[in-house]
């Protein structure tokens, strides 16, 4: 039997996103911001591109491979961005997500701000997996910085 902790780490919504990720593919190579992130301990990789449209809203696409957590996290980030976020709003949410991830289970992710990505809250209790969940968000942060530069 699997423990309830494991079930809360791998919620159905996370497994669904890892199998059918949102925002995957279609990299153009000429985005306003781009970032490649690699987790050297397991080889997980994400390449993420980010553009800002005339209305100031962020568009995001990514490619990569890795564990269910890293893939689902990139997908959930894409889903969040699809709601329509400005670059400032995205930056703010990356900070909120990181704070929750680093809290060792003490801070529940804010569903208002993070949407379904809040389901990744269980990851913060597994220190070794926080990097997996953060991979796409770190890529987005760097892409934001480059888009602004």
């Amino acid at each position: 039997m699997s423990s309830s902790e494991l079930q809360s780490l791998y919620q159905e919504i996370i497994l669904d996103h890892s199998r059918q990720p949102i925002g995957f593919g279609g990299l153009t190579g000429d985005a306003a911001g781009r970032s490649h992130q690699l987790n050297p301990t397991c080889g997980d990789e994400v390449t993420l591109e980010l553009d800002v449209d005339d209305a100031g809203l962020v568009g995001l696409r990514w490619e990569g491979h890795g564990c269910a957590i890293s893939q689902a996290s990139a997908s959930l980030l894409s889903e969040l961005v699809e709601r329509g976020l400005t670059i400032e709003e995205l930056s703010e949410r990356i900070d909120v997500f990181r704070t929750a991830m680093r809290s060792r289970g003490a801070i529940e992710p804010d569903e208002e701000l993070l949407g379904d990505a809040a389901a990744l809250g269980g990851v913060s209790r597994y220190i070794a997996r926080v990097k997996c969940a953060m991979l796409a968000w770190v890529a987005a942060e760097e892409a934001v910085a480059r888009a602004r530069a």
Binding site: S2, C42, D44, G66, C67, A68, I69, R129, C132
Partner: peptide
């Protein structure tokens, strides 16, 4: 179909 990290997490459980 399952990444090694996920297998390892399941085993650790």
């Amino acid at each position: 179909g399952i990444h090694a990290h996920d297998v390892g997490q399941f085993l650790d459980d």
